[in-house]
């Protein structure tokens, strides 16, 4: 299985751990991730205003590249995934966006949303499968009570993201079970961490994180895991009460590629 892989800027700098563990795990699970040579930043937020075309162009380039290679496009950062997945839907369904983007990019072949965008979690669930992962686990995370922190961008808007039930998701819990950990469900796992507002109003972001961590701890979480670098930053820097790791780090530990701390 070979996939196109879009790491995004944060994974090249502050979230190297996420990128690096994801690649090693994918290889161990028999999925080859090929990073295109010339991807550009996705812009980090999907422009909700209908008339904003230019901020979507870098996403369209990555999508068209995957189409040219005939491969599915795997994302990892929750923000990149949100932008790429939704832009892809616009290219498939919104005539105005499709026409304007194609006119501007002058691609060798017009792009109209043909690529399948998969988040790494979907790659694990839908292409590799929890049972296949379970079979490869050499160091199960037995006894570790881990809370999944979904945040917003993986799940919402549910009708576009189509990953899971946005109000009661299970994909990360299923993942945690597959690697032998004990998932702890807590209601705040899909409430916002404060996101980029941490730059504008750190106190506000801190208040959000405190509420999340309080709920997670009350429900018995001993650590948290996430797929989003900004969530991880906020949970760590504005909170700190619980250890937070990327889910790919847990996977690497379970597959014996990395020692548990």
């Amino acid at each position: 299985m070979t996939f196109r892989y879009y790491p995004g800027c944060t994974l090249k700098t502050k979230a190297r751990k996420l990128d690096e563990t994801a690649r090693r795990c994918a290889a161990a699970l028999g999925a080859e991730l090929v990073e295109p040579a010339d991807w550009q930043c996705c812009g980090a937020v999907y422009p909700m205003a209908k008339d904003e075309i230019a901020p979507k162009l870098s996403a369209v380039r990555a999508l068209a590249d995957a189409k040219a290679q005939g491969q599915e496009l795997v994302t990892l950062c929750a923000a990149c995934h949100n932008v790429l997945k939704r832009t892809n839907l616009d290219m498939a369904n919104d005539e105005h966006t499709r026409d304007a983007a194609n006119r501007y990019l002058q691609l060798p072949e017009a792009y109209s949303g043909e690529t399948t965008v998969l988040h790494y979690l979907e790659l694990l669930r839908d292409r590799i499968g929890w049972d296949a992962i379970r079979a490869k686990v050499t160091h199960p995370l037995t006894g570790r009570k881990i809370g999944a922190y979904y945040g917003c961008l993986l799940l919402r808007p549910a009708r576009e993201m189509q990953m899971d039930d946005a109000e009661n998701p299970t994909i990360i819990e299923d993942f945690l079970r597959a690697i032998g950990a004990e998932p702890v469900v807590y209601a705040m796992r899909n409430e916002c961490c404060g996101a980029y507002v941490t730059m504008e109003d750190r106190a506000a972001a801190k208040a959000r994180v405190e509420a999340i961590l309080q709920n997670a701890q009350a429900c018995g979480c001993e650590e948290l895991t996430t797929a989003c670098p900004l969530c991880l930053y906020n949970l760590r820097e504005n909170g700190g009460a619980l250890k937070v790791t990327y889910f790919t780090e847990l996977l690497a530990q379970a597959l014996g590629l990395e020692a548990a701390e």
Binding site: Y186, A187, M188, E191, Q214, N215, A218, C219
Partner: peptide, 15 residues
């Protein structure tokens, strides 16, 4: 009975 004009956005079970 306290009637409140509004809706509920989220319910969080805790402790």
């Amino acid at each position: 009975v306290h009637y409140i004009t509004g809706q509920v956005g989220k319910i969080v079970p805790e402790n």
